[in-house]
Structure formats: C-alpha cells, structure tokens
Design a protein around this nucleic acid. Sequence first.
DNA 1: GGTGTGACTGCAAAGGTTTGCAGCCGAAGT
DNA 2: ACTTCGGCTGCAAACCTTTGCAGTCACACC
Lengths: 400, 400
Amino acid sequence: MTSTTVGHRTPAGVEIEGTRVPATIRDVARASGVHISTVSRTFSAPHLVNPETRLRVLACAEHLGYRPNRAARALITGRTHNIGLIVADIANPFFPPLIKAAESQARHRDYHIFVADTNEDPAAEEDLVHALAKQVDGILLCSPRMSNSLIEQLSREVPLVVINRQVTGLPAVVMDVGQGARLAIEHLTGLGHHNLALLGGPRGSWTSREIRRAATAAARSADAALTVLGPNPPTEGGGIANAEQVRRAGVTAVLAYNDLMAIGLMEGLDSLGIRVPQEVSVVGIDDIALSRLVRPKLTTVATPTAAAGRTAVDMLLQHDSAAAHRNRGGNRTVAADDRRTTAQVMLQTELVIRDSTGPRPPAVSGRTSPAATTTTADPGPHSPADPVNAAAVNPEAVAS
Amino acid sequence: MTSTTVGHRTPAGVEIEGTRVPATIRDVARASGVHISTVSRTFSAPHLVNPETRLRVLACAEHLGYRPNRAARALITGRTHNIGLIVADIANPFFPPLIKAAESQARHRDYHIFVADTNEDPAAEEDLVHALAKQVDGILLCSPRMSNSLIEQLSREVPLVVINRQVTGLPAVVMDVGQGARLAIEHLTGLGHHNLALLGGPRGSWTSREIRRAATAAARSADAALTVLGPNPPTEGGGIANAEQVRRAGVTAVLAYNDLMAIGLMEGLDSLGIRVPQEVSVVGIDDIALSRLVRPKLTTVATPTAAAGRTAVDMLLQHDSAAAHRNRGGNRTVAADDRRTTAQVMLQTELVIRDSTGPRPPAVSGRTSPAATTTTADPGPHSPADPVNAAAVNPEAVAS
DNA sequence: GGTGTGACTGCAAAGGTTTGCAGCCGAAGT
DNA sequence: ACTTCGGCTGCAAACCTTTGCAGTCACACC
C-alpha cells in the first residue's frame, strides 16, 4: 500500500527524511477509495455522506494527518474566516485590550484575528493591507496614519472598518475623544488653571486633530490660553522630550494626547525638579492600566477600548456576511438590500480623576503663554475659529 | 469597451452599486490584449517581457486596480511570504519588543508577520496553528503552553520555531532564565536573605520549570530555604494574589516568574503595609519597560527579547528557504543537505539591580518556611535532587 | 411491475495564479 | 540560403478545494 517510490507525484503522506509532505484531499480519497468530492463533503457537509463512508474517510484522514488547505478553500468559497487587525504600535498599551476584545468577539463568531503592527508608518500600513487582503475577509484599521483618500482606495480591495478615524463612506467606530478633551480642560480650568498646554499626537492622527479641536474650543470658552506642542511621537519618549518645552511655556496644566506621553512628561518634569501636581497638573487620555501604577496616579480620560474592538468586529462581520452572500450565485443580482450600512459608531468617554491634577499653584509667575517653542501657540480666546479643524464631526454618527 | 452588461462572468473591474469586484489577472490580460501568462510574468519576472508590452500591461493593471491574489499565488508557489507569530498574551509587556524585533527582521527579508494571541489557552494555540498553517510559511511559537508531543505533531503540518521552550527535534531559541534565576538567588543570598520564596508561573510553561529548577539548586547551594508558590497566572493579578501567601510564608525575599507578577506582588505587599525592600525584597524577570517606572524600581533579570525575536525569524527563514527549494521540482530528490539544522539557540540573561532589593531586615522573626499554603515547600538543602526537573538542558544548545 | 423518492456518490468546472515547454519571428553567424 | 540563437509570447497543466448537476441504487408505494 504505502510504496515508498518517490515518483512524479509523491504519494500520500510519505515520510521523506523525517519531513512529511502534507497529505491532500486526493490522498485521502485514494486511501479510502472514494471520490475527492466525498472527502470534501465529509468535512464541510457531513450530513450528505453515508455514516459508514464518513467514518472510513475520517479514519484515513486522521491516519494521513490530512488538514484541509484553507488557502485553497478560500480561493473558491471566498471566505477565509480570518480578520486582519492593523495597529499603529503594538507596544502601546492602549492597543492590547482592544485587540483582545476583538479576538474574543471574533472567536465567538468562529473567526480568527491576525494582528499586524505598522510602527506608526503610513507606508507600512498600505503594504500590510495588500499583504492581508486576500487572506482575510476584512481588515480592522486601527488609528491609521495614512490619508483618507488612500484608505478609501484600499477599501475597494478589501472590506475595511476604521477605528479611531472617520472617513466618509466607510464603517467606523470612534471614541469620543473630543468630549473627553473638553471634560479634561473643564476639569483643569475648574481647578483654577488658565494657562494650559496640549501635547499633540502624531501627524496623521484623526484623534489628535479631534482632541486639538475640542481642547481649543473648551479653553476658549473658559477664557484660558492653550499652547499646542507637537506633533509628537505618541510614546513615553514623546512625553519626556516635551518637559523642557512645558516648563518654558510657563503653563500650570497639560493635557497629553495619550497616557504614555503624559507619563513620559511626568518623568521629564520630575527630572527637571518640577512637582506634579503641586506645580504642574497633568492629564492623559486612554486610561491604560499603567496609569494606575505610576506615582502620582494619572488623571486621565477613559476610552472604551474593549467595546471598540468588539463593535468593530461586529460591524465588519455584519457587513461581511452580506458580502459573502452576494459574492456567489451565477448572476449577481444587484439587490436593493445591498445598500451598505456604513454606520459610524461613536463611543462615550469619561474623565477619571486621580492624583496628577490639583489646584493651580498660588502664584508661579504672571507670564501668560510666551512664544511657543515647537509650534503654533493658540492666538488667544478671541481669535476666529481655527479653519484647519473646522471640519465638523460627521453628523450621521450614532451613539452606542 | 467597458460594456456594463452584468453577464455570467463579470467583466473587468466593473462598478456594481459602488462595489468594485476585484480585477483578476484575466481581466488585465483581456484589457491589454496579451495572454495571462504574460501578465503574470510582468509582475513576477519582468525581465522576461518586452518593455513595451510590460508598460501596456502595467497601465491596464493600474487602471483596473489589479492586485495579484496572494492566496492563489501561494497555492502554486507554496510560498506566502508571511510568518505567523503566536504569543500567550499580547497584553503582557514582555511580548511587544519581541514582536517588533521579529517584524523588523522579517520586513528586511521581505516577509510579513501576523500575530495571534492565545489568552494562555493551549487549545487556542492548537487552533491557531491550524488556522495559520497554510497562510504562512512558518510559525513562531512563543512561550507555548501545550504539550511537547502536540507541538511535535503540529510541526509536521507547518514549519515551527519555538521560543522559550525546548522540544527535541525542533529549532528553538530560549533565554537562559536558569542562569538568570541563579544570579537572582545569589544576589539575594548575598544580601543576607536565607528564607526565600519563588512565585511560579503558569502551568505548562517551560520557562517556569527552568526557573524553578535553577532557583532550587541555587538556594540549596547557598543553604537557603525556598518556598515555591504556584502555579500562577503570569499577570499583575497573579502577583497581587500572592501577597498574603508571601507574608504567611515569612520570607524576606521573593523571586517572581516575571516582572508583571513582581509588580503585582509589590502592590499587594504595599496594601498589606509591608515595605519593599525594607521588609521584603522582590526580584522580577524580563526587564519590561514598566519595571523602571514603578516605585521602587524593580530589580530584575533582563532577557534579550529583541534578539530572540530576530533570531527566531532567521532560523525559520533559513530553514524555510531550503524547504521552498525542496518543495518544487518534479522529482523530489532526497538531498543530502536536507539535514535539518535544528539548532537550539540559548541567549544570555543578566541581572539588573535596582531598588526593590536590599539587605535582609535585622530580625523579623526566626521562623523558617512554615507549611507552604499553595504548593510544595522545598524540603530543604539536604534532600535529594528534584526528580521531576532532572531533565538537563539539552547539551546541543549553542550560545549566541 | 412501473414509478417515484431519497440517500448517496461521482463528474467536472471553477477559483486565480505560476511555470515548463514549445512556438514564432527576426537577426546573426557560416 | 540555411541553421542557430535569443527574445518574447502563448499553451496548458498544476496547485487544492468546493459545489451544481447528474447518475446510481435500493426501496417503497400504488
């Protein structure tokens, strides 16, 4: 039976020097004396095959160590049961909870998640979308740094759901960081601060723009000055590097693009001998686990990352099962229910007050926002609205 | 040219209700008036096609938004240029540096890395290997929790490189945590501690066994008692949960399976009013970034995670390019150089002394290792060697 | 006894690509 | 003028599955 002749076509799972060449459906068919279609059905539609036959096939498959080739299967079914998840930086503690939530949700629906990291590099993002495109049924694009137009273009190649970004025509789930930033600024001005700084995030970040827009507006209505520092890498290092600027700006409170930068800033201030919150108050955004571990514990804006992960998977899959249905079937009827539900879900955020914020120090210095070092200082409360950030939040957004 | 008739076979990249059905190689061939094989060569072997033709094909491809279907390509070439990386818990800060190093190394060699998380669940591990199997050229199995025999079996389905584990016959890269644990114990006994505890890691962890083996031996030769607590989940929570046990054990120094547990333990001790390092010294393993951020800064064993990631990719790819070559070609010659180089690389570790360890407190209490709560207490310095852990480190291991 | 039925199985096309081989054509060598 | 060659292109098989359709067979029903 198992002749070891290595011929033109290597036979069923023969051992070659310890390396077993993987058995195919054909090998199983041959071994169990049935047609390959029967083997196929044994796995994908067991009720269609005689129990007796099925057992025999199963036994042979087991014996040969046969595993259906998912790539080949995907080629014809058009379904891989995989989801891609592209994040900017896997080392940023913001992402793991989101990833895990997405994974768990996917698992429930019998999908697997493949994660890829772009190192904050827009080019790597595009590259990865192409690499994943035909191996997954859709991609979750998390905090993308590339341009909207590129995203739209890519979305024609593979179903996309964007997270932490709004791009018209695409399903999206965003955290309401605008609201969060407003709460943070109000918290600070409520404590008496009226000379604030904002540590901006990376270039290309939708979230960063939103925060800036909201923070600017909130500061204006509280008659406070807001110095914007950035763009910066959204890391601890990005925070440390700004300590000097913060001191020079003479502000008494800082809102950072994320917790990592806030923590880095606190480190930097510490080594400059500036005490938090006695001399400078610091607020982060994200509420990563770490923010409870540092001293002082970080006041921050909690974002519902887990919910975002789950929701994104749901949106993709809902979207996607429709697509799967549309995909096959001889004539592609342009069904009326094909109308894409490009919902944009917005998730609420909340302020978590801990120990890194406190009342404005008695009288540090009367200076108000000197020439900002890195970038534009906000011109003040009575200037016209920032035209760059005038694009309003998409009105079709839904709360959830 | 672009007739919009939706026939049996939908033509080249026609817009249907805003959804562009992706163009195939055939569409491009038709549009540019050449055979599909020419189109194929335009992309995979450009020097074989007339520059003029090539330009025309390229233009058509561009215009139709054609992207080669990587799944189909993989089906025939047997190469996907993807690598799978399976980790136990992506939220554990130990992994991201390893992942990033692997990604960067892979990128240099024109490969992509897909990461998947198993939630410390052995069943999920197996599941993921199958899911990834035919979509990647090999899998990096990082800190696997499943049995050796299962790993061996899976390795017949897809090339595997294991990290943080030794399984005979498989290429592996491990960190010398044994050495690290020994250094840690010696550091502690050198500070006068002779009543120690070890916070074990999760069940099924090779690393945990290694640490235990080495720590036990090191304690024995220093005439110190070692209470082993575990197994535990390798998380902050796992550390917190053991604070009470540590107190009851009456030890003055603790070595934890990893930094996360050490940090958790410090938190737990803190809320019990026990000061670190004045009353209890704590040592972690891994040297994650966080260990420099907590107070007191954590003394720990630095593991070369980035090097491990790089090395693992190299080993897989070296292994793998050989396999690719072997894979095609009519008659599969059982080449002599097919001898698999199942090298097992061992990476050195080193002790980083920070602020969480100090000299043994003057006279806390004379008790020596009372009945351990969770598991076996070490029987003492003069008992016979632990038979369970007698399996020595594989002698074919190489330093690197 | 013919017909219908249902359970099972085989046939073959399809999915998108790569690649060895063969063919064509024009230019160069003899 | 005839071969040779090289550059380019087409042909068709192959990779491994899934699935609509049709065929076989036994069995029960009328």
